[in-house]
Design a protein around this nucleic acid. Structure first.
Lengths: 189, 189
DNA sequence: GAACAAATGTTAGTGGCTAACATTTAGTGG
DNA sequence: CCACTAAATGTTAGCCACTAACATTTGTTC
């Protein structure tokens, strides 16, 4: 057991073990071909325990990002602009303020997602929460609800698409991919 | 048996019966609370037969739209514009050329989808095919693949969001909702 | 080391979905 | 009208994601 594991506590440790085993299996034999029981077995644990740590199988790959940060950044955007422009501006600001994430781990997950059509649905469902927050922020600042809803959905879907393509390249910077996507959303490319 | 049913053939008839029973049940007790066996029973048929007509439960609500039409319309857009602009323009043209669909039936389905988070995922998965076609068209006409991918995803997600909101209103015209969404995607509102 | 709570295990189920094989039903040619 | 065929449906059995109720272990604290 590594030092790192030692100071994690039993709960966090099994969770980490499950996640690691799962990603390994997904990469080796595919997400759909890997059963929950198999993951649990590889982690030396019961299927039941697996589901206590991850409510659904797809949560092993898709995780929630930085909702509050995004809301703040959008709030800081100047008013009076069209919702799409404000959403894009907010996302740009939010991203700049973000700690550069462990890019390799992110890419690993996104790669699995990109290779697994059935997971795109999970990503979309996951985006719904962020979308909700974005919409509320835009509407709270005076945008038309319909327009806000469209803008929020479009921006998140656009960024997601960019992430999926980014994961297939080697060595490219995540920040550049996101930045380019935001440009596209402003019809600047 | 109505005249309409008579000239449908057994296959199409059970299919229609299944769909009708399903929508009824979904509206009365919710999508998630309705089981495939229940639908089959209501239609006087076996669960097995149900799945022979609809590969998945969500296909009862989410259906494929007009992919080839969209591709053509995008192809007809002037070149040299940013991908988002071209995609929006293409969609606008495609929509204008569309036979105004049976709005009530569409609204019925979309309403169920809007009320059922677990169905948003199915919608997203369904959009993937259209997205693919859009991307190919844009790239084939010289767009950067990354930008094309972002633009296609954004436009489809935006329209989907607009549809979901439209379904919640009474009497509003579908065409207006779509048109407004496309304006938003061009940051014109 | 007894007591308590957190973490895991067991068992039994539901619901979506599939495969393999049997049966019915609706047309068709004789 | 009947035999024949193919399409449409039925039966049975099972996989997998996921859940509920209850039992057991494991670590911690006093």
């Amino acid at each position: 057991m590594s030092d790192n594991d030692q100071r994690l506590g039993r709960l966090a440790r099994t969770r980490a073990r499950l996640q690691e085993c799962a990603l390994d299996l997904f990469e080796r034999q595919g997400y759909d071909q890997t059963t929950a029981a198999q993951i649990a077995g590889a982690a030396g644990v019961t299927e039941m325990t697996f589901f206590r740590h991850f409510a659904t199988k797809d949560r092993l790959v898709v995780e929630d990002p930085y909702d509050p940060l995004i809301a703040d950044a959008v709030a800081a955007q100047p008013r009076g602009l069209p919702p799409l422009t404000r959403a894009v501006g907010g996302l740009r600001a939010a991203w700049a303020r973000l700690p550069e994430p462990a890019s390799d781990d992110v890419r690993r997950r996104v790669r699995i997602a990109a290779a697994t059509p059935s997971l795109r649905a999970a990503i979309a469902a996951n985006n719904a929460a962020t979308e909700q927050i974005l919409v509320e922020q835009l509407v709270g600042d005076g945008a038309d609800p319909d327009a806000a809803s469209v803008a929020a959905a479009a921006v998140l879907a656009g960024i997601t698409a960019a992430l999926l393509r980014w994961s297939q390249r080697d060595g490219a910077a995540l920040a550049d991919a996101v930045s380019a996507a935001l440009d596209t959303l402003e019809a600047r490319r």
